[in-house]
Simulated scan of single mutants.
Amino acid sequence: MPFWLMKSEPDELSIHDLQRLGKARWDGVRNYQARNFMRAMRPGEQFFFYHSSCPEPGIAGIARIVGDTYPDPTALDPQSHYHDPKASAEKNPWSALDVEFVEAFPRVIPLAQLREQAVLSGMPLVQKGSRLSVMPVTDEEWAGVLALR
């Protein structure tokens, strides 16, 4: 079963928010490659929950995909930060999916520490200039991150 990594700004949705809620909608992805990765996800697959755009970016825990993708309603909402004026109910290019909490790590594994790990050197997350918010994670990378918990 494939593994993934998805980024969220913790002031919007953090691992602790997801823990409290149990389940939430993952939406607002506005990059076609990241969207395509989301569309490849299947129920039951797990992902690293990454806190981004915050004082201490890093992997904060694990969550699970609980359904198939569906049209992202935030694209159609003019009040949403993620509104896409080109999207319509008939042609919405953006996807969302539901996720559930699995585990919060005792501490956030910081990006600086992730970059130091040889097993993670090929991971887009640790590449300079990579801003992709959804990405696949290899079995070896998954195990390498779990060893840092």
Rank of each mutant, 00 (worst) to 15 (best):
3 F>C: 05
4 W>N: 01
5 L>W: 12
9 E>S: 09
10 P>V: 00
11 D>E: 11
11 D>W: 04
12 E>C: 12
13 L>D: 03
15 I>M: 13
17 D>L: 06
17 D>F: 02
17 D>S: 12
19 Q>W: 05
19 Q>S: 09
21 L>E: 07
22 G>M: 05
23 K>Y: 08
24 A>V: 09
25 R>V: 07
27 D>S: 15
34 A>R: 07
34 A>I: 01
35 R>C: 03
35 R>A: 08
35 R>D: 11
36 N>M: 11
36 N>H: 12
40 A>N: 07
40 A>W: 13
42 R>S: 13
43 P>C: 05
49 F>D: 05
52 S>P: 11
53 S>D: 14
53 S>M: 06
55 P>H: 03
56 E>P: 02
59 I>G: 01
59 I>T: 01
60 A>R: 02
63 A>E: 10
64 R>N: 09
65 I>K: 01
66 V>H: 04
70 Y>H: 13
71 P>D: 03
72 D>T: 00
74 T>V: 11
76 L>Y: 07
77 D>S: 07
77 D>L: 11
78 P>R: 05
80 S>P: 03
81 H>P: 00
84 D>N: 05
85 P>W: 12
86 K>A: 15
88 S>C: 13
90 E>A: 14
92 N>Y: 09
92 N>V: 08
95 S>Y: 06
95 S>A: 15
98 D>Q: 14
99 V>P: 06
101 F>W: 14
105 F>H: 08
107 R>Q: 13
108 V>R: 02
110 P>K: 02
110 P>G: 10
111 L>D: 04
111 L>A: 10
111 L>W: 03
112 A>Q: 12
113 Q>C: 05
115 R>D: 07
117 Q>C: 15
120 L>K: 01
121 S>K: 13
121 S>W: 04
123 M>H: 14
125 L>R: 07
126 V>H: 14
128 K>T: 12
129 G>T: 12
131 R>V: 09
132 L>Q: 09
133 S>Q: 08
134 V>F: 14
134 V>Y: 07
135 M>W: 06
138 T>L: 02
141 E>D: 11
143 A>H: 05
149 R>Q: 12
